[in-house]
Design a binder for these strands. Structure first.
Lengths: 202, 202, 202, 202
DNA sequence: AATGAATGAGGGTTCATTCAT
DNA sequence: GATGAATGAACCCTCATTCAT
């Protein structure tokens, strides 16, 4: 097995186990055993358990960002791009439930909190696609005049919750429901006087 | 100190410590020390650490349910009740950031997952207030015709995300923003043809 | 077994094992097993292995200091007190070969070096009995006019070396030899013009 | 790099690191890295870590013995030869503090102990220069009539202690102090009735 | 000869839980 | 009821050594 394959195998196995058993329910030895490597080998690729957990997050972030970037249209009506973007994200999360569950656990653990604290400092501007879209929309006075964080929450949060329900089996997300939800999110962020409501009717 | 006081003290101390350091960053001995009891004493009130963690969740759930129930108006226009309900929840979470952060950590840990699995079985119908309201709204054809889980996500998720941002200092939630967000959530769930859009203008 | 007894047992067992196998040849588990306690118990009395090693040194230092102090005469001719002091030390080391070997290993390991570095800072004036004696002797112009460290080395170092040889079986230290060596050390430190040489003849 | 150069480089790097961090504070990988060779390469020159540590000791012993032998005068008054010998040793240790510190650590570790045990068996008669000198001196009734080990300790131990103090910065060894200490050591070993004391005045 | 990735036994340490007082 | 000393399984991590390249 090549070196890179080993790293990938470790990441893949770790993701699965950590999602299933929680960060503290998975000894390094368990990861090693399932990845068919020695414990020490993991430490050639990751400085420690914490670093492995962070690395998994970054791996996943890279993957989701790539997925979005490669499919996202840079032109077209804002509303259409918004709906399309939401659709992509929803689809990605449904297709990669492991990633979704890892993200949820990571973000709501001390790891995620400290990660966000670090990010606050070196503001690299993540989620830039969404942010760019919103900035354009704000300038065009198409969306509500509230802080961009609020817009972001209105646009994204329901998707996250729905995916969670979907994964837990409370609801089944089909194409129709995905579209409807994406549109509902748009309703939440757009200005909703009749005029701009009219743009739907065009 | 009375027996009940001890239990309360343990719960209060544990909540604080667990939120700050994560479930696995808090030894029982640390809780005992901060609560001014012996380690063994905790085991008189809770069967073990896991049970303590579950008990904390239940305490908190009781508290939040009570807060909602005691303030929620059973009459009035659906939209107004919806906005009011959202406002109560938001306010509760802002006033009790410890509860909020505990919930987030709990829900996204193996504890929360297994708890939800248990609930799936003995469907007790939590969140009944919201559900009742939605059922009424669906019957009145005021809200979109999508699964109730989707409605629930659209109504609640953005608030959760915003509170998280607020607690982390990304955004400051004042009364205006709370109202605007609650209304945006309503926009997401309501039927948004011009007619029902008009009901806002009434 | 009382708590204090346990601490003593751990110290005693640790001393023996560490002397025999070296600091790094003795796992905590080995100490625990021989002391008939659980591994964790050691950590109730010592913060960690390093601290245990330091504690052993201090234990031993206290013991040796006490042994010297309780027997040392505060009056009498300087030469007699010097010889007596050397005798006490020699006897102590011969009687407690474990202590001697522990000291040697400790002093010549990174532990001892860092300990001495710490002591340099908070100069507490150890070995004060010897130092006091020397200061008196210097004032009386009985000993050589060289730095006190040099005097100290001349007075003590040969004893240490001899004890080492004794323990290794290269030489057998009997009372005669002890006395002769102590006197030879005195010859090394005293002013050795005929006049002060004469004080021996008095 | 030639093979021999590699061996020398490994030895030199290892000496430095082992002195600074202790035998157990230096992984083989650290030595390899600092010597710019692969870990495996070290094992071509030394059978294992223990053997490396022994080899370092032997290198050093060879070096010190050579230094003494090449400078030591085989003729002259015993006292002068004694003083000269002590001077050589002292100078060597001061010039090679790394060797000194290595020796101290080695001798007082299980390595040194087992080495000495081995030597006991195949009595090779080390320190022969000193021993020869002493035997000559004993025969000439110039030194005290005590076991040769005792004489050796009196002659050498203070120097060792002083060098240690010097390296640790407790005292500064200049030429004067070196000479004075060497003479004091002579005072310790020589017969010190006035007559032989007079030989100093000659 | 040289490399360095891989190994895995072994070590220090933690901490949930128990139970004699 | 309350205490907290004692327990020991289990964890993370290190590093001497090997061996395929």
């Amino acid at each position: 097995m090549k070196s890179l394959d080993k790293r990938k195998e470790i990441i893949s196995v770790a993701m699965e186990l950590l999602v299933e058993n929680g960060f503290h329910g998975v000894p390094m030895s368990m990861i090693a055993a399932r990845a068919n490597v020695a414990v020490g080998t993991i430490y050639r690729y990751f400085a420690g358990k914490d670093e492995l957990i962070y690395a998994l997050f970054q791996e996943l972030e890279t993957s989701i960002t790539a997925a979005i970037r490669e499919r996202f249209p840079t032109t077209g009506a804002i509303r259409e791009r918004f709906l399309y973007l939401n659709g992509i994200i929803l689809q990605y999360l449904i297709d990669n439930p492991l990633h979704f569950r890892y993200l949820e656990q990571f973000m709501n653990s001390p790891y995620g909190v400290s990660m966000r604290r670090d990010r606050l400092l070196d503001k690299e501007g993540r989620n830039d696609i969404f942010m760019t879209l919103f900035e354009e929309a704000i300038a065009a006075r198409i969306v509500k005049d509230i802080p961009i964080n609020a817009l972001f929450s209105l646009a994204i949060a329901p998707l996250i919750f729905l995916v969670r329900d979907h994964i837990l089996g409370f609801v089944t997300l089909n194409e129709d429901l995905i579209r409807q939800t994406a549109e509902a999110c748009w309703d939440a962020v757009r200005r909703n006087d009749c005029e701009s409501g009219a743009d739907r009717a065009r």
